[in-house]
Design a protein around this nucleic acid. Structure first.
Lengths: 120, 120
DNA sequence: GCAATGGTTAACCAAAGGGTTTAGTGTTTT
DNA sequence: AAAACACTAAACCCTTTGGTTAACCATTGC
């Protein structure tokens, strides 16, 4: 099935990939995503494990929010952050094109190991 | 098959992920990788499609090289760049943990939660 | 030997990143 | 009403990033 977008490599997609990969390129943000993958959390909860100020953690969350990897829902004075996987699926789809390169490699490794095992 | 590394989330891995995702977060570099996935190329060839100076393109290549996504082999005055998929496989492996969220959503989420529960 | 080719290095620039502290805004709680 | 809480916003700092131009190797060709 074709995508509904007119041009497959439209700038809009590239923009999204820029944002997603940039969001994933920081270990603090990756760890925040790991936390959120285990369930929604407040800003304070997400900031707690890190050795940085709350504003700093909040900035990281904003990057994730900008990449649409998390959505915040305000309820009273607490903001609940929820993991939103779609952009990651987009990145995954981009990687798909390259997956054959290391699948081949693992396949080769596998047959190599099988050969080696059959020698012993 | 288990990885040989002692600690699965060692800083060294995080460093690698930082480099890879950062390398992938620029569309120029992604396009360079797309070119290289169709075969090795020289620096000039890789720089040609882009509306930027050669030094600028060379810097992008250095970022890719730093992430070990390309390796350069010098032969005379020409430098041939070759795609190296391993780091991308590493990023892919990181994504694997989240794939359940968009792949077969409910079913996979269920098994993910079961796995998670069995960890505790 | 000299000039062209392929590329890097260096110096510079503006903008973005990642952190800080201080101050401010709205909610709860007491 | 006042204090505590959960944040955000603003101002600032330093480093990194992505680009430029100009100068500088090397290697190759004539």
């Amino acid at each position: 099935m074709m995508t509904l977008r007119s041009t497959p490599t439209a700038p809009i997609d590239e923009d999204r990939l820029d944002l997603v990969f940039k969001a994933l390129s920081d270990r603090t943000r990756r760890q925040m995503l790991a936390m959120l993958s285990r369930g929604s959390a407040t800003v304070s909860e997400l900031a707690a494990p890190f050795d940085m100020s709350l504003p700093a953690a909040s900035k990281h969350l904003k990057v994730l929010e900008n990449a649409q990897l998390v959505i915040r829902t305000k309820s009273g004075r607490v903001q609940t952050c929820t993991f939103q996987p779609d952009p990651m699926a987009h990145a995954d789809q981009w990687l798909e094109h390259y997956r054959v390169f290391w699948n081949n490699r693992l396949e080769s490794l596998k047959s190599y190991l099988e050969d080696k095992d059959s020698d012993t």
